[in-house]
Amino acid sequence: MPAPSRSGPAVIRFLDVHKSYRVGGRDVPALEPFSLDIADGEVFGIIGHSGAGKSTLIRLINLLERPSGGRVLIGDVDMTALDEPALRAQRRRIGMIFQHFNLLGSQTIADNVAFPLRLAGARDEAAIRARVAELLARVGLEAHADKYPAQLSGGQKQRVGIARALANRPSILLCDEATSALDPQTTASVLDLLAEINRELKLTVVLITHEMDVVRRVCDRVAVLDAGRIVELGAVADVFLHPRHPTTRRFVEEALPEEAAAGEAPFARVPGRILRLSFRGAATWTPTLSRVMRETGVDFNILAGRIDRIKDLPYGQLTLALEGRDVDAALAALRGAGIEIEELPR
């Protein structure tokens, strides 16, 4: 299934980029050579364990890390070819938020949000105040303008970070483990805010995380990073429902704890053929399974299952044991109705 068509042409392009660090006189690779396009308006997730290279990768976009080779294009600007002043001008068009928020502790919330405006040369205090008020309203912190960061909760601090990142009307928002320091409930509200910003401001969002659940909730596409290599890349629904690389499978299992708990060969004692059915979108709303089973006279036994959403897409995944003479006919009918089927080893 192709990526959602909401996104447009490539706005961030990595062309044969690699990065290594010099440690003790030796080049240690952090990212193997790769090319990658991130489309205008999409929410692109990069998932990996710590040390996989995802922090480095996201910092290559605004050149906080300079690539050891290859080119990074933002729109049609080659970031790697810019001199310092031009690079600073480009960076103002790329917002960034951080795991530990990185707010100025000595400044009020309003001054923190005004900071990028002032850095960019804004001098009209009335205009700055108006823009800050507008930004704080967007993130729901109007009442906290005159407080200091130390007086806010983690979720509120990240909202300040988001308001600050949006101040100069960027076209790209980079999120560096933006929810990793937050509790689950706050994580959900910050992710909702990011999704809303992506939708309403048509902003391209690139986020890195080590939690598949973050990817599932907000991302359109995902790249799985393992030891400096992109080992899997695709629409989140494809990667999530049909993970291929072992690292991806582990990430998916972490998001679905009950499946990981089942262990090796969980269906050894179950009779019949073991099949995993994936329903997406409209297929989740029709009683296809019961109709096909009735028509073909096949018996089914539900072994595991869930119904949830991947971003805006409802999906269901059922693991079934099928018994009967017409199992193949039943599978063909299910496939015909748009249900994806994998046969699992027993």
Binding site: L64, R88, R91, R92, P116, L119
Partner: peptide
């Protein structure tokens, strides 16, 4: 904190 400095760099501060 280095993070605050990095955030400022990301905002295009000289």
């Amino acid at each position: 904190e280095h993070g605050v400095v990095e955030a400022s760099q990301a905002m295009g501060a000289s």
